[in-house]
């Protein structure tokens, strides 16, 4: 059932890419999609692939919302007449509980594009992520926010 949905989606994507929605072209797209699914059947056969896909999509949605918010917030800071009072830059050491390369990379990239935070460096033993905060309230707040927000979602996604 889910395989059929994937093939259909790939066929539509193919038609959009080539710019023609004729029946023959859709059929060609479906054939290529089937081939791709056949090639990837091992990784698609994972028991919770569909569930994970849904979680990835919801994470992407959350990310886009946060990205819009962060751009607006940076814009407000930049356009403040009295810059000194609006800025409280600080570097926060965030203790990582995720371990794999993929998880840390994803988390670091998510942090960079979310409100007021920018990841700078990962310590050599991968236990601490250094995060630069533009307008820090307290460093504890920032740590709790990241740990309960993106880190939890990332861990769930890779679990």
């Amino acid at each position: 059932m889910s395989v059929a949905v994937i093939v259909l989606g790939l066929a539509l994507l193919w038609a959009a890419m080539t710019g023609s929605f004729s029946g023959l072209n859709l059929l060609l797209g479906a054939a290529i999609g089937t081939l791709a699914v056949l090639l990837l059947r091992k990784s698609l056969a994972q028991p919770r692939a569909v569930h994970k896909l849904r979680m990835a999509v919801s994470l992407a949605g959350l990310f886009l919302r946060e990205l819009a918010l962060s751009a607006v917030r940076v814009a407000i800071v930049v356009l403040t007449p009295n810059l000194k009072s609006a800025l409280h830059p600080e570097i926060v050491a965030f203790p990582l509980s995720v371990r794999s390369d993929a998880e840390i990379t994803l988390l670091a990239n998510l942090i960079t594009l979310t409100p007021g935070t920018l990841s700078i460096d990962v310590s050599a033993d991968r236990s601490v992520l250094y995060v630069h905060v533009l307008t820090a309230s307290t460093s504890q707040n920032v740590i709790v926010e990241i740990a309960n927000g993106f880190e939890a979602r990332v861990r769930e996604l890779f679990a």
């Binding site: 751009a71 940076v74 830059p89 594009l113 920018l118 630069h132």
Partner: peptide
Amino acid sequence: RLPDLYTRMHAASKAGAVG
């Protein structure tokens, strides 16, 4: 406008990417 490299980076990476 911003005073040091890291704060400038906030502006360039977020507002720049969104723009």
